[in-house]
Simulated assay, not measured.
Amino acid sequence: MKLYTYQAPGGVDRLGVGYLDAPGFLWPVEAFGLPFADMNDLICHADKAALDRLRDRGNASEGPLALDSVRLRAPIPRPLQDLMCLGINYADHAVESARFHQDAFLVDRKKATYFGKRVFEATGDGDAIPSYTGLVDGLDYEVELGVVLGKDAKNVPEDKVYEYIFGYTVINDVSARNLQTEHNQWYFGKSLDGFTPMGPCFLTADEVAFPPVLRVSSMVNGETRQDSRTDHLIHGVAEIIAELSRGMTLRAGTVIATGTPSGVGMGFTPPNFLKPGDVVTCAVEGIGEITNTVE
């Protein structure tokens, strides 16, 4: 199933559930008698019985809403913690990154590169990406598979990682390349408000074989820029979560962005960065797509 955060008329965030055999519709979660406050509450407190109840739309006390009749928010508009992100996690992206700025993008490391991304409020499908004229020179897009944990994880072996995954989503890891390179670290250049488009939903983990092998792609103004699959990750989902959980507790609701393939703006010669008016669409197979316009 797919889980959404949406706004109905009145502007109040509500939770919805959708089904793969009923595309284009969602059912309000409260119609199932499950009054979760928000997505973080659902992830942290929904037990198996509650999730099973949601999986059967026959349990709903009211009919569905059309997706195009509501405003979709990011599935977790305000994550409980910074996103945990992977850098240089596709071999072809490593090549284009080094070509752009070899000092800022060290590509010969054997171990995974992790960094944090501050998220004041995640951006929903259809919302704008700010361009920050005067601050940002080199606005870039990065489509990524996002993984969200369903329970606290610590010292998890790789063969048990799947038991901790709640679901998957689409993330556009928007980046200010000048800030990323000038500061010799990535946190600032990744963390400006509006730099985390996410959605359109969470696809629950039971809908995807593990490890996930899904197509990831992006388009700018209708032109395909990125097109790869998650089996090309250098460090896979099981390795990432097992390593990060060694000695560090990953809380339920943690969102991990697994890295982006080649085709980002800095990979072009000369670089082809985003500008106001550009329309960016990021998609992951089976989950859906998010489209945002640069303002």
Rank of each mutant, 00 (worst) to 15 (best):
M1G: 12
P9D: 11
G11W: 06
V12P: 04
D13G: 00
Y19N: 05
P23M: 08
P23Q: 09
F25S: 11
W27K: 02
A31L: 01
F36M: 02
D38N: 12
M39H: 03
N40Q: 07
C44L: 12
L54N: 00
R57P: 01
N59K: 07
G63H: 09
V70G: 06
L72F: 08
I76T: 14
M84K: 14
G87K: 03
N89E: 11
H93I: 09
R99L: 14
F105C: 04
D108Q: 14
R109S: 15
T113L: 15
F115L: 10
G116R: 13
L135A: 14
G138M: 06
G138C: 02
G138Y: 00
V143P: 11
G150M: 04
A153Y: 09
P157W: 07
D159R: 12
K160W: 11
Y168K: 07
V174G: 07
N178Q: 07
L179I: 09
H183I: 01
F195Q: 12
P212E: 11
L214C: 08
T230L: 14
D231N: 07
G236S: 05
V237L: 01
V237R: 10
S245Q: 02
S245C: 12
R251I: 11
P261M: 07
F268A: 14
L274V: 00
K275E: 13
G277C: 06
G286T: 08
G288S: 09
I290Q: 10
V294Y: 02
E295Y: 14
